[in-house]
């Protein structure tokens, strides 16, 4: 099996760039505590292009890096990201491309799935869970959908997944 190092390096670079932006420059476009999740946008782009296994491991790595800075919820980001990446990988890019709005809907669903898994894994239950979901996740999801929409329709042009 031929390994496409250039392609892997490019995709790793996109993920690393998203992580860098998320850790540094994201505060410039934050609206108070509401900030877009660029890593999830990058993860979705990669999973749609490379499939569930690549999405799974990419999500795992991204989650682990995020977990390093969240000692109290260690493992929650890794679990939520890897599951989201795995699920997103089942949606073939051809199908998504045939109807561009689908990509935005998919991103919205991925955001909800990610946050639900994260909060449950982090031990949020009952009122705290719903409060976090409505007050933190919902505004961030809207903002992320807006930023994701801009990225998808203007700059990021992904090729169909290679079969």
């Amino acid at each position: 099996m031929r390994i496409h190092w250039k392609r892997i390096a490019m995709e790793a670079g996109i993920l690393a760039g998203a992580l860098l932006l998320q850790q540094t420059l994201i505060r410039w476009i934050s609206l108070g505590p509401v900030r877009p999740d660029l890593t999830l946008i990058a993860l979705m782009a990669l999973a749609l292009r490379r499939g569930p296994i690549a999405g799974l491991y990419a999500g795992m790595i991204l989650g682990l890096v995020q977990d390093v800075y969240a000692v109290e919820t260690l493992g929650a980001n890794a679990l939520s990201n890897c599951l989201v990446g795995y699920v997103l990988g089942f949606f073939e890019d051809k199908v998504v491309k045939s109807l561009p709005a689908t990509r935005i809907l998919l991103l919205g669903a991925a955001l909800i799935l990610h946050d639900v898994i994260f909060y449950l894994a982090a031990g949020f239950h009952g009122g705290v869970f719903w409060s976090a979901l409505l007050r933190q996740s919902a505004p961030s999801a809207v903002y992320t959908l807006f930023v994701g929409g801009l990225i998808f329709y203007s700059t990021l042009r992904l090729k169909p997944r290679e079969v």
Binding site: P52, I53, L56, Y57, G59, M60, G63, D67, V71, L74, G75, A76, A78, L79, C82, L83, Y86, A121
Partner: peptide, 22 residues
């Protein structure tokens, strides 16, 4: 079964991390 196995591996690893004490 590499997809399922990978998923299981990641979930288990995440579970191990989640189960860690402080």
């Amino acid at each position: 079964w590499r997809g399922i196995l990978s998923l299981l591996l990641c979930v288990v690893f995440s579970g191990v991390l989640l189960s860690q004490d402080r």
